[in-house]
Computed example of a mutant assay.
Amino acid sequence: MGTVRRCLCIGLSALLLSGCNLIVFNPKGQVAIDERNLIILATGLMLLVVIPVIVMMFLFAYRYRATNKSADYKPRWASSHKIEAVVWGVPLVIIIILGIVTWVTTHALDPYRPLDSDVPPVNVQVVATDWKWLFIYPDLGIATVNELALPVHTPVSFTITSDAAMTSFFIPALGGQIYAMAGMQTRLHLIANETGEFRGIAANYNGQGFSDMHFSTLSTTRADFDAWVSKVKAAPQKLDRTAYDALAKPTIGHRIEYYSTVDQGLFMAIVDKYEGMNKGKAAENREAKAQPTDTGTGAMTTEDTMAKER
């Protein structure tokens, strides 16, 4: 009995202490704030039913206990329209409210939906590999490994893929979670409301190095972001196809790296590696490659070529 009591005390203490830094309820971005509010609202609405039921369970058990001889005993009691109205009406109202809220927020918090802002977004291409994160800034011509920087109060548009097993891209402090899959591109839009350093993780198990597949997210002022970009551009490493092939090899606990230049089209080349997984894409590419080139003197069609060969 003493052991059970100690275990319960330890478990309760751990639960209470974990709430001190429960990042989901301490968001640093507008998307995360909206998601937190939705969680609180939905939970509160459901507790309107759950709490009274739990209270009545203990109340009825106490009132109608075997030793309480004063409790009314009505074996022929049939039904009550008032009770029926409450039992069915309250859950119905809650379901209607939850349905409306879910409909509105599902569209408002769609990860593919660009955020409303007067500030132009920062575009970031994300590649998940074994077991590290590659961030390419196509408009800036730089790339980093396991470190993501973004200016505060500025929307960030992520285009995400994987060059390994499927995983999930997640920055809990900023909200949103979306899968990274080989041969596919998913989208996510986030914004930071505060400066700071936030933890990003792989939220889907993807192998041996899963627990070490995390990265730092730096939310900075615009001036500090520009200084960070200058630091990355001064790095000696360049990310060409050969350097990427070496980077993509499985590693665990990979260090932060900076690349001052990136091969244009590297991200799409990574996506297109798996075009065989998308039969429509593969057929489209083969058709595009088969199209003749017009040199100005007339284009030769595939049928003309075959007739000439015959």
Rank of each mutant, 00 (worst) to 15 (best):
V104G: 09
F58L: 12
H107I: 09
N37W: 03
L109T: 08
F25P: 00
K82T: 14
I94A: 09
S70D: 04
A85S: 05
K82M: 12
I40W: 04
M46R: 09
L109E: 08
W88N: 15
I51A: 12
E35P: 04
V87G: 05
W77E: 07
F60I: 15
L109Y: 01
P75S: 01
D110L: 08
Q30M: 13
T102Q: 15
P91T: 15
L38M: 11
L48Q: 03
T106Y: 13
Y62M: 02
F58K: 13
A61F: 01
N26Y: 09
P27L: 07
E35F: 02
P91N: 15
G99F: 12
V101W: 07
V86G: 02
Y64T: 05
Y64M: 02
K82Q: 09
V87D: 03
L47R: 07
A108C: 04
L38G: 07
F60T: 13
Y64D: 02
T43P: 10
S80K: 11
L48T: 02
V53I: 14
G99Q: 08
S79H: 12
A32Y: 04
L59C: 12
W88R: 15
H107L: 11
F60G: 11
I94Q: 08
D72G: 00
P75N: 00
P75Q: 02
L98I: 14
H81F: 12
A32W: 03
G99L: 11
F60H: 06
L38D: 13
R36L: 03
